[in-house]
């Protein structure tokens, strides 16, 4: 038998045809997506004056700025970041390029960083407490009063959607410039964010314990206290600690609008172009944030470990 040429097979032809049309459709779709993305990009560029000339003008200035920020050229008699070399790194305060010169205002920074961390702690505690109170009436499975559940949920939603920096900016007016405005702003945002997470944990709680306590005549509070809380508390604490890590970051920047913490100092030194202090503060913030993250992660694993 003579082997047939497979290209004459109608099935093969159909395959080629179908394959070709599918391929074309897919390529067209890809190009269409790219075109839409590019179009949006152009519209956005027009809306923000993001032109090539602007970029061309901006880039040298960025280079210059970061060059100064990380410069080894003398500025005001000293480079902004010490050239790491043993002979002058551990020199005195008067010795340029030494760590002591770089961090010469470490006492001020330490005080402000301490304040920043305290702000984060108290704001987390406040937000945690408020979210803890609000999360039970926000859970439909635990409270069969639909209007109350709806209302509490909307309140939590509004609390977490308003940006906390905006809230802090507004609070500076009634509560004065200082950490109090920042604490309240972060606390309110924390309430909304944790309230949502707590509600989700509550929804997943096993209802059999609640029914058991109801069957022996326990009040609603007793049902929550002895039926739900033992199940959800480790999760609450874990989320609370996670939120604490986020709040530490927030409290470092909330000072930009005058709401206390190291942010006000950072804004000042950036504004006055005191380059060595900008880099010093940024390094300190990074160190504190990383250290607290690691600590909180340890504790969190402990909580989760206890439940398993």
């Amino acid at each position: 038998m003579i082997p047939q040429d497979p290209t004459n097979d109608p099935a093969y032809r159909l395959f080629v045809q179908r394959f070709g049309s599918l391929r074309r459709a897919r390529i067209a779709e890809t190009w269409l997506t790219i075109a839409v993305l590019a179009l949006l990009f152009l519209i956005s560029a027009v809306a923000t004056d993001f032109s090539p000339e602007q970029i061309a003008r901006g880039i040298p200035r960025i280079g210059e700025y970061f060059g100064k920020l990380l410069s080894i050229e003398p500025k005001r008699g000293a480079p902004s970041v010490p050239v790491l070399a043993w002979d002058h790194l551990f020199g005195g305060v008067k010795e340029p390029q030494s760590v002591a010169y770089w961090f010469y205002r470490i006492d001020v920074y330490t005080k402000l960083l301490w304040q920043t961390v305290q702000m984060a702690i108290i704001a987390t505690v406040m937000g945690f407490t408020a979210a803890f109170v609000l999360c039970f009436p926000a859970t439909g499975t635990l409270l069969p009063l639909r209007p109350v559940v709806f209302l509490v949920r909307r309140v939590l939603e509004i609390l977490r959607t308003i940006p906390q920096v905006v809230l802090a900016f507004i609070f500076v007016w009634p509560f004065g410039i200082g950490p109090l405005a920042g604490i309240l702003a972060i606390g309110i945002h924390t309430t909304g964010a944790l309230g949502k997470l707590f509600t989700e944990l509550n929804e997943n709680a096993d209802l059999r314990a609640v029914e058991g306590i109801r069957s022996v005549g326990g009040s609603w509070l007793a049902q929550m206290r002895y039926g739900v809380m033992p199940q959800v508390l480790p999760g609450f604490l874990s989320y609370g600690l996670l939120r604490f890590e986020i709040n530490v970051r927030s409290s470092t920047i909330i000072g930009f609008v005058g709401a206390g913490g190291i942010g006000s100092e950072l804004k000042r030194v950036i504004g006055f172009n005191i380059y060595e202090e900008v880099s010093a503060i940024c390094i300190l913030i990074l160190l504190v944030v990383v250290a607290l993250d690691l600590t909180s992660e340890r504790i969190r694993h402990r909580f989760i470990g206890n439940t398993v």
Binding site: D49, F50, R57
Partner: peptide, 9 residues
């Protein structure tokens, strides 16, 4: 903002 000035860029 310090490096390229005020504005969306």
């Amino acid at each position: 903002v310090r490096a390229v000035g005020l504005g969306p860029i």
